[in-house]
Design a protein around this nucleic acid. Sequence first.
RNA 1: UGGGUUAUAGUGUAAAGGUAGCACACCAGAUUUUGAUUCUGUUCGUCUAGGUUCGAAUCCUAGUAACCCAACCA
Length: 558
Amino acid sequence: MSEEKSLNFLEDIIEQDLKEGKYQSIVTRFPPEPNGYLHMGHATSICLNFGLTKKYPGYTNLRFDDTNPLTEDTEYVESIKADIKWLGFEWKNELYASDYFEQLYQYAITLIKKGLAYVDDLTAEEIAKLKGTPTEHGKDSPHRGRSIEENLDLFARMKNGEFIDGAKTLRAKIDMAHTNMLMRDPLLYRIKHAHHHRTGNDWCIYPMYDFAHGQSDSIENITHSICTLEFIPHRELYDWFIEKLEIYPSHQYEFARRNLSYTVMSKRKLLQLVNDKHVNGWDDPRMPTISGMRRRGFTPKSIRTFCDKVGIAKRENIIDFSLLEFCLREDLNNTAHRAMVVLDPIKLIITNYENNKVEELPSENGPDENLGTRLLPFSKELWIEREDFMEIPAKKWFRLAPGAMVRLKSAYIIKCDNFIKDIDGNVTEIHCTYFPESKSGSDTSGLATKGVIHWVSVAQALTAEVRLYDRLFKVENPNSDSEDSGGDFKDYINPASLQTITTAYIEPSLKNATETMRYQFIRKGYFCLDKDATPEKLVFNRTVTLKDAWVKETKKEG
RNA sequence: UGGGUUAUAGUGUAAAGGUAGCACACCAGAUUUUGAUUCUGUUCGUCUAGGUUCGAAUCCUAGUAACCCAACCA
């Protein structure tokens, strides 16, 4: 197993930098804006930034990009920190762009003094109008020619709160005819008489993203500032500020955000799903948020493995959801405790089994022997899965059917002799005989069955609510054809993304289930206890199904 | 009508002029007291057209397609 994983383009750059002695160690940062919950897209960025400094000497800062007081809140800061920790990463320093407000203010003054920034009186609409379009040059603002002294005075008065919101802005003086729209005298500061979650009412002017991000990187000596593709045009500005301010030269590198099939990832769309009640909150197990996935039962390791397998590049992509499921199952298969649960019950009576007799049969907790075994009560009356019986067996069917034999997992081989139907034709009871000498672990019957099914003893069964989750969207790319065609991503919502089973029969050992435990309900999938569970009422979420070759077989028949 | 970025199996990602590889998915088979897991195997790919070269995914030329850029958001 000496397979050498090839480097992605960022690792190539870093190894080159290290080799050339440009840096002895590297510094990266994860820069969320505290205005929402983290989702799978952030997870790839987290794994990337923190992963790089795990692989190479250096460290990663957590820096909240909190330059817009109107949308940001401490509540989000806390959830973001919790999510990063849950994913298994540790930041070196917890920092905030707002920590640098004073320094940023001084940088602005420096630019003004160099004649590279000016105070503008234009309204947002007027500025937009003069900005031009991608194909047409912009025009200079009438205030572009103000003297340095006047600009200094005006900017100080902006800071001192002499003007109302929107009355004035500070802009860089670059080039209104630039082909890069961002270089057409971008806004540096705007007036917002607003309360900031950290600086309170200290400031009434706030820096824009472009004037805060690069300089924050620089202040922290970030060597590799990694962001997504849409920031490519910003890099020119990023470099411009660093050059004019003559500060530490951080460098920005861009990669393509990861898109997952059958999900949406934009904050706006996720917010809409929550607000319109298509899901039950940000941590709904169907949401691609970190909190939702955690509640669903995803493991941090599976997410990290996924990010690692997907890799990193610069082209548009939609990654198969099945790759994420593969990583999930791979992890869960090794760690989840097995349990027997019947979701859609039908009663099975073993006619030749002694009344009132109860045996305690051992069953393995998992493929890893260290997980040990537990005892399952077995008796004359059992619940089995309705779908494990077919009155008229299909081709290649090797579960229960009239006259057919099947093994009850960890127990005996049984043979179906008879079944009872109600007036509507529904099977209500199955009668079988068992072979005492076929007992699991000491089978001398010489019988062999291809089919093995799970069961729960009626008398000892407990009940639980089980929530079966499926993908939230019916189509691979719910983002496509939105706005233009009049279509909407919400049109693609899968109406069957949640199926609630109010009364499932569970084996008694599940009474002690905890939220951190992961289970495999044998033959049904991986499950975990939901936070809604109480000692009186257990609630389980299906994390992901098991792969099912039988379902494929039935699909082949049409 | 401008500028920027990207094109490799169904999906994602490697190959730095020298055998187009890996993973997931798919399909087929073996094992199996979970139709799971595990194992084996098959099919399938360099955006197009030219050119350079003994040899091109890679270099050159010309096209084509997709995405991004006109928030006092980040």
